[in-house]
Amino acid sequence: MLSERLWESISDVYSAILSHPFITGLVSGKLEEERFKYYIIQDYHYLKDFSKALAVLSAKAESQEQSVLFATHVSDVIKVERDLHNYFFTHWKINPEDFEQSPSNLMYTSYLLSTVYSRPFYEGVAVVLPCYWIYMEVGRELTKKGSPNPLYKRWIDTYGGEEYEVGVKNVLNIINSFKLTDSQEKMMFKHFRLASIFEYMFWDMAYRLERFPFKIKV
Rank of each mutant, 00 (worst) to 15 (best):
F70E: 00
F70Q: 01
F70P: 01
F70N: 00
F70T: 03
F70C: 03
T72C: 09
T72K: 12
V77N: 01
I78H: 14
V80Q: 06
V80P: 00
E81G: 14
R82K: 12
R82E: 15
L84A: 08
H85E: 09
Y87A: 08
F88S: 02
T90P: 03
T90K: 13
T90Y: 10
H91Y: 15
K93M: 12
K93H: 15
I94F: 08
D98T: 10
D98F: 12
E100M: 10
S102M: 05
S104E: 10
N105F: 04
L106P: 02
T109P: 04
Y111I: 09
V116S: 02
Y117C: 13
P120Y: 03
F121H: 11
Y122G: 03
E123W: 07
G124L: 04
V125K: 02
V127N: 01
L129G: 00
L129Y: 01
P130E: 04
Y132L: 05
W133P: 00
I134K: 01
G139A: 09
R140H: 10
E141D: 11
L142D: 00
L142R: 00
T143E: 07
K144Q: 09
K145S: 15
G146E: 04
G146Y: 04
P148N: 12
P150L: 11
L151N: 06
Y152H: 07
R154A: 14
R154S: 08
R154K: 14
W155R: 02
I156C: 01
I156K: 00
T158A: 10
Y159L: 05
G160F: 01
E162P: 08
E162M: 11
E162G: 06
G167E: 08
G167P: 03
V168W: 03
